[in-house]
């Protein structure tokens, strides 16, 4: 197992490197320039700026020196759009915010989703099942950009109990709506995956054996069915978790939380190459890491899986 993990980490390095090269090429190939404004800059000024940021050099050299600086100094470069700020700065400011509400939303969607899915499965074709399925279909139909305005309308404008936006260091009232808005549709997917995999497991022969051994219903669910039923959920959770903690543009824009999602979109609009690259690398590393975590969890859940 340990050797497998080390091997996977080693494979992760070229993966990230490929990611860096491809995204760098994509950004540069895309039309537009970081310094294109309403009024075009005089050519010699533009040339000066490009020279300052090394954009006049051949592409391969640009990429090589970018990677070199990251590896040697952990330097992701300056932001083009935010004057006098480095990419590391911006990520360190925005990432804790998205990590906080993203992680909370993840917890909420897993706890509620798994519970709903299990209830629906063990009470299949009863009103409880229909209710749980109904809730998850409804939630699925409410993506965060619909949820967010509805929440603000209800809790801020009508009831006046929650602030309509802001972060304030992540105080509870400022967390509630971002977490709910972000978790709703994920919760729905998790509920549906849990329900179908639980139903499948409950049909397995070994569940019949457990019943024949006189085990009670609760014990069968928690001691025998839950672990295998979680396998498909776990594989869904890996990429989902990364998606959630790296933030959501909608949440950041709508609630002005100042998370990384907002910076990412602005960076793309501004052609802020270093910032786009920095956030892409962060997401890439997290994806590689959590795919590994999922695989390790898999082996822990299912003893027949060995690497």
């Amino acid at each position: 197992m340990a050797s497998y993990i080390i091997r996977r980490i080693l494979i992760g390095i070229p993966t990230i490197l490929a990611l860096v090269v491809f995204s760098y090429l994509l950004i540069v190939v895309a039309p537009g320039s970081p310094f294109a404004g309403e009024r075009p800059l005089p050519p010699d000024v533009l040339a000066n700026i490009e020279a300052r940021y090394g954009l006049d050099r051949p592409l391969a050299e640009q990429i090589a020196s970018y990677v070199w600086r990251i590896v040697m100094d952990f330097d992701f470069g300056p932001s083009f759009a935010y004057q006098d700020r480095t990419v590391t700065d911006i990520v360190l400011q925005g990432f804790p915010v998205t990590l906080t509400y993203g992680f909370l939303a993840f917890l909420v969607s897993v706890l509620v989703g798994v519970t709903l899915g299990i209830v629906a499965a063990i009470r299949k074709n009863t009103w409880l099942d229909y209710l749980a399925v109904g809730i998850s279909i409804g939630a699925q139909a409410l993506p965060n950009f619909v949820m967010a305005p509805i929440l603000v309308l209800v809790f801020t404008l009508w009831l006046g109990v929650l602030p309509g936006g802001g972060w304030q260091g992540g105080q509870l009232p400022y967390l509630v709506m971002p977490v709910i808005a972000l978790s709703t549709s994920f919760m729905a997917s998790i509920a549906r995956i849990t329900r179908s995999s639980m139903l499948e497991v409950l049909n397995a022969d070994f569940i019949l054996t457990a019943r024949a051994m006189g085990l009670g219903f609760g014990r069968i669910i928690f001691s025998h069915a839950l672990k295998p039923a979680m396998l498909p959920v776990v594989s869904y959770l890996g990429p989902t978790f990364v998606g959630m903690i790296t933030g959501s543009v909608v949440i950041d824009m709508y609630f002005s939380t100042g998370g990384i999602g907002q910076f990412f979109v602005n960076a793309a609009i501004n052609r802020d190459y270093p910032l786009i690259m920095g956030i892409t690398i962060l997401t890439g590393c997290l994806t590689v890491t959590f795919n590994l975590v999922v695989d390790v969890l898999y082996a822990w859940i299912d003893p027949r899986i060995r690497y």
Partner: peptide
């Protein structure tokens, strides 16, 4: 079940829980 009347099944490959 199991204490008075017990039952075993056709396919031993699938009737034990593979996860435990």
């Amino acid at each position: 079940r199991a204490s008075d009347i017990a039952m075993i099944f056709q396919n031993p490959m699938t009737s034990l829980n593979p996860y435990k």
